[in-house]
Design a binder for these strands. Structure first.
Lengths: 190, 190
DNA sequence: CGACTTTCGTTCGGTCTCAAATTGTACGGA
DNA sequence: TCCGTACAATTTGAGACCGAACGAAAGTCG
């Protein structure tokens, strides 16, 4: 249950650990709180509206994307939902088996797969989304409309920074070195 | 790559879908951006500083918590790291097998397990944390120190709202009904 | 001091997660 | 038409993730 106090406290401890190396405190606190807030909100939504419809966060997001954007190619859905396409394959399979999502080949391009909501999926969203939005309002009820706008704007700028300059930054950090493989994940056959 | 435009666009589409039911737009945009930002930041950090040391986000957070707070009981670490205690058991096992984390029984209370960093773990954090904080600064470099403070504050208020009133809210929503079990998860033996 | 209750950490089932390897389709040029 | 390149989704391997069930230890109270 770490609020402001913990973070401030943690800063001091981390500072002491480093013996004088300066810490970017404001930035550290901002980033830490982004994750705290994200997981608190996610937790609340999963355990309130989503639980009753037996949906995980990710499953809901995927359905939501297809709902608002209509029949879509999987890579767009993955991008929009913020998950990898590998993950989407699995999630879509699950949702398909539950009769919420349909899957169809693209008429012109055989490589593409199109996702769309079934009638059952459509009904589900019609029912669940309003409740979901209601809880979004609940979690932000400590903020005014204006503050919500400010919050959204500040976060948007963080997202843009990473999207616009992240890749370049990562290249610079590696500086020529090949980007170390992940520990988990597939290995070369050889 | 959905920035402001996508969200605004999505609002209209969702709005149309609902045929007149009002949407809390600011709240929806704020919540959506919290998650967008969280995953963008996490992605960037995993693929820059953490990757090189073969750490996942969660593994790093766990190490960080033990690092700043010192030898700690597992439930505190889980709480502070924002993961369930079940997850922590697994993560701690992994980190222990890599020689970064130590595990010891509590002398007075046989139920407790204490986690602490090994020397190797200590060295790792000494090296990795400054780089991590550097990237926290990078992702927020579009914001001034003041804006970071504002951002942290707004997010903190969201977290507090959920922590202080979330449980009660969820009870109200269920209104007596037993809280539907998760689809995945252990079942009663019977 | 024995029976209840609480509180630990661990185990377990099912899902999600990533990125690399793989498979399949498309399309340009030789 | 065959060939290589480009790009799509899927499979795969290792692990993170949650929360209910669980067993052990500790506390409580008669």
């Amino acid at each position: 249950m770490p609020g402001q106090r913990s973070i401030t406290e943690a800063e001091k401890l981390a500072s002491a650990k480093l013996g004088g190396i300066p810490i970017r405190r404001e930035q550290m606190a901002a980033v830490a709180n982004v994750h705290r807030a994200a997981s608190a909100v996610r937790q609340h939504l999963e355990n309130s509206v989503l639980r009753g419809s037996d949906l995980t966060w990710t499953a809901f997001v995927v359905l939501w994307v297809v709902w608002v954007w209509g029949e879509s190619e999987t890579r767009h859905v993955a991008e929009e939902a913020g998950i990898s396409k590998g993950t989407l394959t699995g999630v879509a399979r699950t949702l398909e088996s539950r009769g919420l999502l349909g899957r169809a080949g693209h008429p012109g391009d055989g490589r593409l797969v199109l996702l769309s909501l079934t009638d059952k999926g459509e009904e589900l969203m019609q029912r669940v989304f309003p409740a979901f939005n209601e809880e979004e309002a609940f979690v932000t009820s400590g903020l005014s409309d204006d503050e919500c706008r400010t919050l959204a704007d500040l976060l948007r700028r963080v997202v843009l920074q990473v999207e616009d300059h992240g890749e370049e930054r990562r290249r610079e950090l590696l500086d020529g070195a090949e980007p170390a493989p992940r520990r988990s994940g597939r290995r070369a056959k050889a």
